[in-house]
Amino acid sequence: MSMFKIFDVSGSAASAQTQRLNVVASNLANADTVAGPDGKAYKARQVVFQTLMMGEATSAGVQVSDVIESGDPGRRVHDPKHPQADADGYVTYSNVSPVEEMVNMISASRSYQNNVEVMNTAKGLLLKTLQLGQS
């Protein structure tokens, strides 16, 4: 019933965005990873958001329901001198698209900021409510 629920709602969203940012960091870090001896390179990961109802109909938080791996084929580069090159002289890199990840990163950080601002406003209003009837 009270505005305290806003911290749960926005907090869950901020936490979900943090997980998204974490995944972006992993993807970007592994952008140039090559396939090991098993021929499997790093696959780009992505989080899946889901609405999480918190008690009443007006409080809808967010949760990460799943982390999925991209099925796109990895980037293949012809480099016969590379130690990890296969019989045809090709090296398989991870399928991470750095441009997509940068866009994802900006989007996640903006959404995070939005939720922080919501929490700050709610905090200000609650503090003013606490002073009701004084002064």
Partner: peptide
């Protein structure tokens, strides 16, 4: 007003949720 504030906070929280 508090109720509406929470509703809008929920909408902002779910700005990236598919199908919301």
């Amino acid at each position: 007003r508090a109720e509406r504030q929470r509703l809008i906070a929920s909408n902002i929280a779910n700005a990236d949720t598919p199908g919301y």
